[in-house]
Design a protein around this nucleic acid. Structure first.
Ligand SMILES: NC(=O)c1ccc[n+]([C@@H]2O[C@H](COP(=O)([O-])OP(=O)(O)OC[C@H]3O[C@@H](n4cnc5c(N)ncnc54)[C@H](O)[C@@H]3O)[C@@H](O)[C@H]2O)c1
Ligand SMILES: NC(=O)c1ccc[n+]([C@@H]2O[C@H](COP(=O)([O-])OP(=O)(O)OC[C@H]3O[C@@H](n4cnc5c(N)ncnc54)[C@H](O)[C@@H]3O)[C@@H](O)[C@H]2O)c1
Lengths: 224, 224
DNA sequence: TCCATTCTGTGAACGAATTCACAAGGGCCT
DNA sequence: AGGCCCTTGTGAATTCGTTCACAGAATGGA
């Protein structure tokens, strides 16, 4: 058995361990369940219970967590608040992320008004749009900026993450400027493939493609 | 080499071939690119070109397509309009899907006003909500119904797909009724794990989890 | 007609992710 | 203290998805 070094319960050797996207998605889910059951007063959960509530298997839960350390007690399970706190640290949610919303249209404003982001530490510190009728309007406690000021705003507000909710045609231009502005995390809602340097991370929300996947699934099973 | 039977270019033996989710997602992407380049007058694309535009590899493109048939010409590539039409058939987009929107809040109304769904054959034929102030209001050419009429509306409108944009707490109840109403495709925006019978397909749009995945990625690379 | 060129379609090799299975740790009861 | 039961942590086996590599179909030019 190889010896291991721990820091606050986190493996040091995770530095270059490759964590898969599916593992990360599940970690988010575990955290959500832990917070919910913690609020309900439960203080211990087994991998089996966590798996059942998140729609996976007990072995998967244990494997996912073991990539980062040993957080459970054999014979007992996982201490809910402790594990939640470990997961927050692992996911980088033990800090505030400064987010700029680029595109103040239908999706953009729905996101802006949604409380679920701030609650998780994602603070919208700027909103930008190209529409002169929108520039200067007050959004909560920020003033909507003109897209021409993009670079200045990104710098002035130390933006970590940009949420792109602009039409597909407008993406390439704006994307280049966002990347040039030093932003290394992008959440994209436009139905296009984003081309970015390898040190920039993009996550896509492709609702139409999800619907198309539903269409495929329904066509398959319905046709027999 | 096993002999094969073809019907309109589609393999009959796909009936029980297991198509992965990633393949389906990529098929959607191929279709989008084909339509875009087709509109631009291009009439042939190689797997290499298709791969480059969708962010995958040529081998992957060919493998994905070969799961359903032989659509290309060796030495030449794929005929754009033909392949687009094949993909539409494969994905079940050669028909109209009748969609009910359950939850006429921020996300629900953004989706409703978005043209990209109808354009792809997803027609919103009903909107439902629990808020008395919203019931009876006119949404395009439908009248918003009270959620208490859910079953009746699903039946009357022959709804194929339900889009769930209601708060997480309201989901379990409504979900049961949707499933009981015979709907077999659900697009879910609430941050909960949906528990459905195996003949019902669920796709999730979990924006907060995508942001958390960004947070994880930025924490990893930023910390070294 | 024949050859050179190009790009598909697909088995085979590879690699990644999931599941299995069990040794060992920990708590609790007698 | 000892024994029993429960549940973790993790190598090994398996399954699943991607990449490789090449034989062979189509085209165009000589
Ligand atoms: N609304 C939906 O339900 C939905 C669903 C799926 C995908 N999307 C995608 O999300 C994106 C936004 O959709 P939407 O419905 O909110 O669109 P929208 O038209 O309501 O909003 C787009 C906003 O972007 C602004 N804009 C345009 N060009 C700009 C530029 N160069 N710089 C800055 N701002 C610019 C516009 O002024 C507008 O305010 C689109 O790419 C769309 O395809 C939307
Ligand atoms: N808005 C966002 O940006 C965003 C982002 C991520 C996830 N979500 C999720 O999407 C869902 C909807 O979010 P939203 O921002 O549109 O919320 P919202 O509060 O704006 O809208 C929810 C709507 O559902 C209705 N409703 C409540 N209970 C109902 C019931 N039992 N039956 C029918 N309708 C009912 C409400 O009347 C309201 O109109 C939530 O689960 C939310 O967590 C939203």
């Amino acid at each position: 058995m190889p010896e291991r070094a721990f820091t606050a319960g986190l493996r040091l050797d995770r530095v270059r361990l490759n964590i898969s996207e599916s593992t990360v998605r599940r970690l988010s889910f575990y955290l959500r369940i832990l917070e919910k059951t913690g609020d309900a007063g439960v203080d211990t959960l087994s991998s089996e219970e966590l798996a059942e509530r998140t729609g996976t298997t007990a072995a998967q839960v244990r494997k996912d967590l073991s990539l980062f350390g040993s957080f459970g007690k054999r014979g007992l399970g996982y201490a809910v608040p402790q594990l939640a706190s470990e997961l927050r640290e692992i996911l980088g949610l033990d800090r505030t992320w400064r987010v700029a919303l680029v595109g103040g249209g239908r999706i953009g404003s729905a996101l802006f008004e949604y409380g679920g982001f701030r609650h998780r530490g994602f603070e919208i510190v700027a909103v930008l749009d190209a529409d002169p009728a929108k520039v200067g309007t007050i959004w909560g406690d920020v003033v909507l900026s003109d897209i021409s000021n993009l670079e200045a705003v990104l710098r002035a507000e130390s933006v970590d993450i940009v949420v792109l909710t602009i039409p597909a045609e407008a993406v390439p231009d704006v994307l280049d400027r966002v990347v040039a502005g030093g932003v290394r995390g992008i959440l994209n809602f436009a139905p296009v493939q984003l081309r970015v340097p390898s040190d920039v991370t993009v996550k896509d929300v492709h609702m139409v493609m999800e619907l198309e996947a539903l269409s495929f699934a329904l066509s398959q099973t319905g046709g027999e």
